[in-house]
């Protein structure tokens, strides 16, 4: 599929003798949410890490915006990484406790050698429904839902096309979870982002995803 944002073909990830991801293939269109669903240990998070090239796959291809990533060097990946950003499960664990929220949100831009202005940071926080004053606070001063919003703001900073969301709402109360899912839906509508959405909660997946890939023991069993 040439118009796919992400085209994963025969992906294989091994840990020693264990095959965590066993010839997994799927595509994801711009503006689409594709869920990877399955029990703990089914390989969904390993798939996500391999897509992001945080762990290099043992075989298969990851074609993102028409470029095959698995053969690229770290240096060659550098301009690609800002366009595919992760959002993790643990909102506190994914933000450094010592850094202010504003610094954490601006960090992806600094890594690219850009100098984010306070206005840019304020706009990112506003975009995720956080008052810009939160930029001066540290993660422990925020609730779980607010922390997750800050994590999303940070992921948006580098203007990505794809968010890889690894259990982004699994540690949140249902009421807070609804707010974060609504935010993600609004961002997708506004920005046309593709979402690779990893989640073990079937009710959330059914509500939120356009398509679902079911995984068991490293393999795709439907989708």
């Amino acid at each position: 599929m040439s118009d796919a944002l992400l085209d994963v073909r025969d992906l294989v990830v091994r840990y020693g003798d264990t095959t965590a991801v066993d010839h997994v293939s799927f595509t994801l269109a711009p503006g689409e949410t594709l869920a990877l669903n399955g029990p703990s240990g089914c390989g969904k998070s390993s798939t996500a890490q391999a897509v992001l090239q945080l762990r290099r796959p043992d075989a298969g291809e990851v074609v993102f915006e028409g470029r095959e990533l698995t053969t690229l060097t770290e240096r060659e990946l550098r301009p690609v990484r800002p366009r595919m950003q992760p959002v993790f499960q643990d909102p506190y664990g994914s933000l450094s406790p010592r850094h202010r929220i504003g610094d954490a949100v601006a960090e992806p831009l600094r890594i690219q050698g850009r100098r984010p202005t306070p206005d840019q940071v304020a706009e990112l926080l506003d975009r995720v429904g956080l008052d810009p004053s939160y930029g001066d606070r540290r993660p422990h001063e925020l609730s779980g839902g607010q922390c997750q919003r800050a994590g999303i703001a940070r992921a948006l900073a580098s203007e990505p096309r794809l968010l890889v969301l690894d259990e982004p709402v699994s540690s949140l109360d249902p009421s807070v979870r609804a707010g974060v899912l609504n935010l993600l839906a609004d961002l997708q509508d506004d920005l046309g982002l593709g979402y690779l959405f990893i989640c073990h909660d079937r009710a959330v997946v059914r509500h939120f995803a356009d398509r679902v890939v079911e995984m068991r023991e490293g393999r795709v069993i439907s989708g």
């Binding site: 009421s175 059914r206 509500h207």
Partner: peptide, 23 residues
């Protein structure tokens, strides 16, 4: 009712979930 409304299994069709406003 608000807690239950925010569950995806009780949500009306469409993408937005009914959420309890505020915290």
């Amino acid at each position: 009712a608000g807690l239950l409304a925010s569950l995806p299994q009780h949500a009306p069709p469409g993408r937005r979930l009914p959420a309890l406003r505020g915290t």
